[in-house]
């Protein structure tokens, strides 16, 4: 029976002691502890949120970078293509100009050759005329070696020449 028969004194002191413990801890211990815990949890939460935002931003940044890189690559391709086009055009132009020049040179060469040939023909003609004169002179000298013949011939020439 003693086990379930507590004394009034024990109940009194227990009530007092537990009441005091609750009161003191409620006033001096628990608020500090629970507030500190809540504060820390909040700061951790805050830090996690900030980290999340940063990660998000990093992701965006990375995406932007990739975009940029992609654009740069595309631009590089365009630039290279354009350069290739320009090069081809330049080459074509150069080739065309070269051909033209060559044609022009060939043409002028032909011209010059023609001129040379013409000059040569004139020279040859002159030469032939000279030679012909020489021959004619020699022939005439031969023919007009006697005076009679000379006279006759002069007369003939005089007759032929219109004297006015």
């Amino acid at each position: 029976m003693e086990l379930v028969n507590p004394g009034i004194g024990l109940i009194f002191w227990m009530t007092l002691a537990f009441g005091v413990v609750v009161f003191i801890l409620k006033k001096f211990a628990w608020p500090a502890i629970t507030n500190a815990l809540a504060e820390r949890e909040e700061s951790i939460e805050e830090a996690l949120r900030a980290a999340e935002i940063t990660r998000e931003e990093m992701k965006k940044l990375k995406l932007d970078n990739e975009e940029l890189l992609k654009e740069a690559k595309e631009e590089r391709v365009t630039i290279i293509n354009e350069a290739r086009k320009i090069r081809d055009k330049m080459l074509d132009d150069a080739r065309a100009r070269g051909n033209e020049e060559a044609d022009r040179i060939v043409e002028s060469a032909k011209q010059r050759i023609q001129n040379e040939r013409n000059a040569a023909i004139v020279d040859i003609k002159n030469e032939i005329a000279e030679i012909s004169i020489l021959i004619a002179e020699k022939i005439l000298r031969e023919k007009l070696s006697d005076t009679a013949a000379q006279r006759e011939y002069v007369n003939k020439l005089l007759k032929e020449t219109n004297l006015n």
Partner: peptide, 30 residues
């Protein structure tokens, strides 16, 4: 009417003092 400080009452006092000291010092470290 028996308000004696019995073994249990004394033990309650000791542990109460211990608990108060313990959690106030924990609160201080917080």
């Amino acid at each position: 009417l028996d308000f004696s400080i019995t073994k249990n009452v004394f033990s309650i006092f000791i542990t109460s003092a211990f608990i108060i000291w313990l959690f106030i010092s924990i609160a201080k470290s917080y």
